[in-house]
Nucleic acid binder design. Sequence first.
DNA 1: CTGTTAGCGCATTCAT
DNA 2: ATGAATGCGCTAACAG
Lengths: 329, 329
Amino acid sequence: MMKDHTIRDVAEAAGVSTATVSRVLAAENAGRVSEETRRRVHFAVEALGYRANHAARSLKTRSSRTVGVIAPELANSFFMDLAEGIEGVLDAGGYTLLLASSSNSVEEEKKRISAFTDRMVDGMVIIPAGSSGDHLKALAERLPVVQVDRFVEGADLDTVVSDNEGGCFELTGALLRDGYTRIGFAGGDITLSTARERLSGYGRALAEAGITPEPEWICLGGMGIEDGYRRMETILAGKTPPEALVAVNLLVHLGVQRYLLDHPEGKMIIAGFDESPFTPFLPLCRYTAAQNAVEIGKQAGCRIMEKIRHKEGRTECRIIRLPVTINSH
Amino acid sequence: MMKDHTIRDVAEAAGVSTATVSRVLAAENAGRVSEETRRRVHFAVEALGYRANHAARSLKTRSSRTVGVIAPELANSFFMDLAEGIEGVLDAGGYTLLLASSSNSVEEEKKRISAFTDRMVDGMVIIPAGSSGDHLKALAERLPVVQVDRFVEGADLDTVVSDNEGGCFELTGALLRDGYTRIGFAGGDITLSTARERLSGYGRALAEAGITPEPEWICLGGMGIEDGYRRMETILAGKTPPEALVAVNLLVHLGVQRYLLDHPEGKMIIAGFDESPFTPFLPLCRYTAAQNAVEIGKQAGCRIMEKIRHKEGRTECRIIRLPVTINSH
DNA sequence: CTGTTAGCGCATTCAT
DNA sequence: ATGAATGCGCTAACAG
């Protein structure tokens, strides 16, 4: 087994000083070194199987060539598609991704942020767990931050999100064009910007059609499967239940369909935000608004890399909105 | 904005030496310090908002209190359930999880491993991307390693996996008890231990029932949705297609059902390994074998923590097999 | 273009 | 029980 070599070993093997080795290895920056020396150093590195000590480098440079990503949960393919999009960009830029879960809790999110700053990540991409963003604002004073998928109040940060309002407007519009007028909204947690924006798009579509929805057609709350299930129960309990429904996200959509599967007496046409490989099997699903999660991730990855590279201070923060695709089934 | 304080600042504020601060902060080990001093140090730490420099500590101790997890892909809820199981255990033990994707490539896996060792992770949990495991074996010489979900050849490593053989035996048995005798197997990549073991369980069930499957009932290959789709095409093209089918995993299962959705003339009852919240909507699905991914993760987390704590050298490696649950639909 | 030197912040002997 | 001194491996001035 090959002992761990240090930069000094490489220096000796190549017959140069450690500073020279460091210059050769320090990226393709302007560390002026003769071609011959460079070659010898590289050779020694190969021969010894040298790997730079990351901790020592970080200690010295106060940078770790990593960016931290915090998602509300790991077991959510939308978030992970996002993460993979980010990872691709970072990889290409020689950066490594650190991934952690906030378990949908702002408290946990704060802990993760601390863990990441302790590890001297050069930047962070965050899918905020909640709506309070003071800690994110404070964080952004210290290092590059990009928020994705969701907004947070009171912190103007670089942001990459889908066009939730427009998407839900279209989704609702598709149902309207099919002739439905009594359209409900199986909504979500309005402390999340996504849920608010989607509700807003739904509302605008109805308004433009001159329709005033019954209050009991609109049902808000959590955004999990169980929430969708109970939400459907509530909506069907109204006097004049809607004949069609817009679901705020995939999980609520799934819960809604599960309820309808268990209680087939309730008929309903559904247009749902988000898509999945399983969507073709959801019997009541008529339309979906597909987000391009990987692309969101890529954009976020590019943005964070830009900010890191150019050490952008508080430049005006950019907000990127990506379109969604309406599909019919 | 609060400047970053060092251990020296804390020492001064508390009127002690840096060595003492270090002793107080170095976990709850036997660093003998008087209660009074300890109190003063803690107070100073709080007052200054001191956070130890992780890089410096790692450089000195050659440990980072992190464990790396490598999954073949992030956007796979089975792997991420696993990861969350691991994370829970690590968290409780004061360790941090680093997560990376090998993109189903052994080459990428090697790169990730290097990135992790560079970062001085104290141990690694790996879902192997392929069947070649020399690099894993070599890795295990250097630090604690646990492989999960899948086996790798030629490296005896600590392992946590589901009872794939038994699960598939039961799954097939359930179909047999329903009276089906012509049962096919929409299998997967037999370089993966999971696919091999499941095939084996299927074979044993048929053998015990005295049934010899037609060769064309068994179809192997990739383990994605598209693979399942094409696999179904192949299986139905045989002279005497089976009347029921065991699907090696969720993705192949999904692909199979998608084919059958597009070609309703093919009838088929399906028993599939793995489950998902969408399973109730798969019309042809009769049985599933549900793995407890979170539990696998927990076990793996516990095992890696044990090995790290006790600096277990090459103790005999333990293989943990977790049962799966057969559900009918 | 290259070598010498001086820390980065911490844990850890070795004294006391 | 505590302090002083040393060095982990690396990069960044500063010289030459």
